[in-house]
């Protein structure tokens, strides 16, 4: 799938359609992801290169199907697990605990 000389994220020069001009206001959960990515780097757990490495390894399908901060939270998680901040098991247990609290983002805040 991947040409090492020209990986999918290296899209400069590719043909593409008109630039979509619609924007959106960032949701609080997106702002939190952004903050956690900055703070996780400040804590020394990963670098911006680590963030990008995980984003690029997700592949083109993730780029097409996930939103920007969905990809960022996935990369953040990958980097924090690799850094040993928490384990996959701890993440899984915590996500189950969070989900059990309610059906909306607002309802599950502790």
């Amino acid at each position: 799938m991947d040409d090492p000389e020209h990986r999918w994220h290296d899209m400069g020069g590719d043909a593409a359609g008109p630039v979509p001009m619609d924007g959106h206001d960032f949701a609080i959960w997106e702002k939190r992801v952004d903050a956690l990515v900055i703070l996780g780097q400040q804590r020394g757990h990963f670098t911006v290169d680590g963030l990008r490495r995980a984003l690029e390894d997700m592949g083109e399908a993730a780029f097409n199907e996930m939103t920007y901060y969905e990809r960022w939270v996935a990369s953040l998680n990958q980097n924090l697990i690799e850094a040993g901040v928490y384990s996959l098991e701890e993440l899984g247990a915590k996500m189950e605990e969070v989900k059990a609290r309610g059906d909306t983002y607002g309802a599950v805040q502790s």
Binding site: V85, Y86, K94, M95, Y105, V108
Partner: peptide
């Protein structure tokens, strides 16, 4: 859900 979990774990 993952964002909430990461934030709480940290």
């Amino acid at each position: 859900t993952m964002e909430v979990a990461i934030r709480e774990l940290m």
